[in-house]
Write a protein that binds this DNA or RNA. Structure first.
Length: 220
DNA sequence: CATGGGATTGACT
DNA sequence: GTCAATCCCATGC
């Protein structure tokens, strides 16, 4: 699989966020097409790099084309692609994938421990719902930033890795994804700079993490 | 050194 | 809709 070169990421982060839609993320024997992204830039307060260089933002301020992986809510790993020139804190958060290969592996990882502590044990069995565990649908595997890292087996150990050489790799849009229908909307789960429409997703795709707000103008 | 807050998810009321 | 889990790290004494 041919990966995107570092210079792909060396341009305005919002542009890269849009261009990454349709590209393929691969790790741990599984892969999926990116269907949702968000851009973050040091010039706005929702970005971790807003505060400048700290141990946490070292990768974020480093050279483009690297993976920035951090832990969220003490539980989930978040995968970002570092963008813009070295010294500028900017990254694209990969928020959702449409699974394309290694689905059995994804399902195994998602069903196993590693996500929410409660996921797995008590879940489905007790609620009586058939199959809350062990039989996740394809659309439940990678439809969220924490879900996709779990499905691909991406952990904090991958922080700083080169996205061209791996272990986490990103490849260009495959045939059939050359011109995705992209919708822009506001970012999810943040409390600052909420007005920026820096979230991009594939219109109508079933693997996105959350429905589109009315303002996005997507027809169901 | 102590504290507080998340770029979330899944279970439960 | 509400809520807890859980840990890294930025911030403030």
């Amino acid at each position: 699989m041919k990966a995107l070169a570092p210079d792909f990421y060396d341009r305005p982060v919002v542009e890269v966020a849009r261009e990454l839609i349709g590209c393929v993320v691969e790790h741990g024997g599984a892969a999926g097409v990116i269907v949702e992204t968000e851009a973050y830039h040091e010039s706005e307060p929702a970005c971790h790099a807003f505060v400048g260089l700290t141990p946490r933002t070292r990768t974020l301020l480093g050279p483009p084309g690297r993976a920035y992986v951090y832990r969220s809510y003490g539980i989930h790993a978040m995968l970002n692609a570092v963008c813009e020139q070295e010294g500028v804190g900017a990254a694209v958060l990969i928020r959702a994938l449409e699974p394309t290969s290694g689905l059995a592996l994804m399902r195994a990882r998602r069903g196993a421990t590693g996500g929410s502590p409660r996921a797995g044990l008590s879940a489905g069995a007790r609620s009586g719902r058939p199959g809350a565990r062990g039989s996740l649908s394809d659309h439940e595997l990678c439809s969220g930033p924490g879900k996709l890292t779990q499905a691909l087996g991406i952990s904090l150990a991958e922080n700083g890795g080169d996205l061209a050489s791996g272990p986490v790799r990103i490849a260009p849009r495959p045939p059939g994804w050359l011109e995705p229908a992209i919708v822009a909307s506001t970012r999810v789960g943040i409390t600052k700079a909420v007005e920026l429409r820096w979230r991009f997703s594939v219109a109508g795709n079933r693997d996105v993490s959350r429905p589109w707000p009315r303002s996005a103008g997507v027809r169901p």
